[in-house]
Computed example of a mutant assay.
Amino acid sequence: MHQLIASPYNGKFLIARPGSKGGMRIPRTLYEELASTAESSSPLPAWLLDHALTAWGLDLDLEGTVMRETVLVRPETRLGYGRATYEINKGCNFNCEHCYLAERKFEGLSWPDKVRLLHLLRDAGVLWLQFTGGEPLIDRDFTDAYTLAHRSGMLIEILTNGSRLHRPEIINLLRDLPPHKVTVSLYGATPGSFDALTRKPGAFKLVEKGLIAAHEAGLALELALIITRHNAHELNAMHALAERYGAGSQEYSTISPTYTGTPEPLAAQAPGFLDKTSVFKGCPAGHTFFHVDPHGLATMCKVGRENPVDLMTEGLDGLFRLPGIADAQMLRTGGCGGCQLSGTCRVCRPLAKAYQEAKAPLNTYCQHGEEETR
């Protein structure tokens, strides 16, 4: 099994190690040197041995270490998509109040079609792949899909609620084939707040078991702290949980409507926790990044799902249409007209459209709403 990946990425060439941070940008000449010996029994070049030891403490200067067993060299492709998210299933074992999915149906591709889809992602140039849902770990094909993506030379992030991380078949897989990162959504620091938001009794205990198992397995772990009306008073305790399990953490305080434009999730918003600081400065969605839903429909991202490309019928050629589809969604003004603040919007146009269709309060997504509340 490969220990290093050499891959094109957005016009550059990188060397990465699955499950580890850090990497190396190399010139085309060194990438071509690796590509020319990728399937051979040649020893690893001295410059690569030195870097592996410096960057990761990885000693590859051992007897019997050869290129074809150690370094997976990803070929250049016609497309420049370095990242993708794969919503393997919309089904979920939680029923979170704030969920952006209007429906959480447990459905998707058959296993043979999942194999074909993952090969298409590989051939599109995807190096960083995020498995998401719904809850990806409950998909019947998750372990096989993860294994195939990992062995295809993708660096994988799993976005999960953590409820199944403790299961032996999951934790053993991730220990043997380490992900780039496991991001667990944290919905509170106590059973009362956590179970209220997820609307599942016992959810907090399940997630704690998963965090313990992931920490003991040495997985790269991050907690997404989802701040809502149920848990805002526990924010410090949520940060303390992240520290306890050796995890990084990011706060997410603004609740959006469903991405189909219905308002139900907005009721979970914690008063005083709207993010009013960041300004939307553009996004590569549809150009160097894309999203795939459970049926193999590719869109610019999780939010902008108009005019999807059916990868299962169009194949890679369909992705050449995606930049134009993305640009059309980003340029549309929708319910905004003659705005003098458009250069400092905090949300992209597809997300603003979802807010508008949900008839959300203006202050939740637009600076004009701030003027009304003064």
Rank of each mutant, 00 (worst) to 15 (best):
A203S: 15
L186S: 11
A214V: 10
H230G: 02
I325Y: 00
T132D: 03
D317W: 00
F204W: 15
L155S: 03
R25P: 02
G134H: 10
L173C: 09
G64N: 10
I255E: 02
K105C: 05
M330H: 07
V303D: 02
L297A: 04
T299H: 01
L331C: 07
V184K: 08
L219M: 09
G188L: 06
N231T: 04
G261V: 03
E87A: 14
A149T: 03
N10P: 00
Y355F: 15
T183W: 01
I158Q: 07
R140W: 07
Q340I: 10
A149H: 02
R332E: 15
K276D: 09
P27D: 09
G261A: 05
D144N: 11
E222V: 01
E357W: 10
I88Q: 09
L121H: 07
I26N: 01
L127G: 02
V279Q: 00
Q329N: 07
A6H: 10
G11L: 07
S256C: 11
P136F: 11
D59F: 03
A285D: 10
A55L: 11
A52V: 00
I212Q: 12
G335A: 15
P323T: 01
I227D: 03
T262C: 00
T183Q: 15
A214N: 09
H215I: 00
T344Q: 13
R151S: 14
G318D: 01
E97N: 02
A268N: 05
A220S: 14
N363L: 14
G91D: 07
W47R: 10
L127H: 06
L362Q: 11
S40L: 00
C301G: 09
R321P: 04
E243N: 12
L297V: 00
T29R: 14
H119C: 09
T258C: 06
L60S: 04
A217D: 08
Q130G: 07
A358Y: 08
L62Y: 08
E306L: 01
G369P: 05
E169H: 12
L362E: 13
H150N: 06
A285R: 07
G23Y: 04
A232D: 09
R167Y: 08
L30Q: 12
N161I: 06
